[in-house]
Design a protein around this nucleic acid. Structure first.
Length: 196
DNA sequence: GATTGACGCCGAG
DNA sequence: CTCGGCGTCAATC
């Protein structure tokens, strides 16, 4: 006689090539967290379950997972941002993914960066009218929706690629697949510099 | 309060 | 070019 927990989430996984992908969704069907790909299935699951301990596995949402995998592999595909849980209302709820309006504003700003383009942490900060460049970096570091919200397209002002949760290697690989030239972790001059 | 960041800038070597 | 040191600000302890 257990009770059905409202906070239980659904985790779906997909193996694409030799990498596993995972996505966590609320009962409402909104995406609350996306994991970075990994060769270890347990790792991609715990990347989500660490934040949402009560879950059950499902093999639904394969379409969503396929899209994520293809974007990761450098394809330019549309992703419906409406699928992401960006509300702050369930702050104390298990099914919230974003913790503050600051984080939300940062995520929304990063989401605007088009395929194959880059923006600096400083530029993101400036469009939010703050000088808290590091705070912006920290918020981006917590991005619950990597790949889909393209935090891999945010680099440092000195043109170094900067940090990445999944390791700098992964960030460089993703940018390469989107057509950017990188040498010694620095972005080389290319077409995408003429943004704005 | 004090410390910690996926940062930025400037000045010294 | 690389380093330190300091500015700055949100989150965390």
């Amino acid at each position: 006689m257990w009770q059905k927990k409202q906070n239980t989430i659904i985790i779906s996984t997909l193996k694409f090539g030799d990498l596993y992908f995972a996505v966590g969704l609320s009962k409402k069907g909104k995406i609350i967290r996306i994991s970075l790909p990994n060769t270890c299935l347990n790792d991609v699951i715990s990347e989500i379950s660490d934040h949402h301990p009560e879950y059950h596995l499902s093999d639904e949402h394969l379409e969503t997972l396929m899209k994520i995998a293809r974007i990761y592999n450098g394809e330019n595909i549309d992703f419906n941002m409406e699928l992401l849980e960006l509300d702050l209302e369930n702050k104390n709820h298990e099914t919230s993914s974003i913790n503050s309006s600051f984080e939300r504003d940062v995520i929304l700003e990063v989401a605007k960066i088009p395929y194959g383009n880059i923006k600096t942490y400083k530029e993101i900060a400036e469009s939010l009218n703050t000088k808290g460049y590091r705070a912006v970096g920290t918020a981006i570091g917590k991005n619950p929706f990597p790949i889909v919200v393209p935090c891999h397209r945010v680099i440092r002002s000195d043109r170094n690629v900067g940090g990445f949760r999944g390791g700098t290697e992964m960030k460089v690989n993703m940018l390469n697949k989107e057509g950017l030239n990188i040498e010694k972790f620095k972005i080389k001059f290319d077409k995408s510099i003429q943004k704005k």
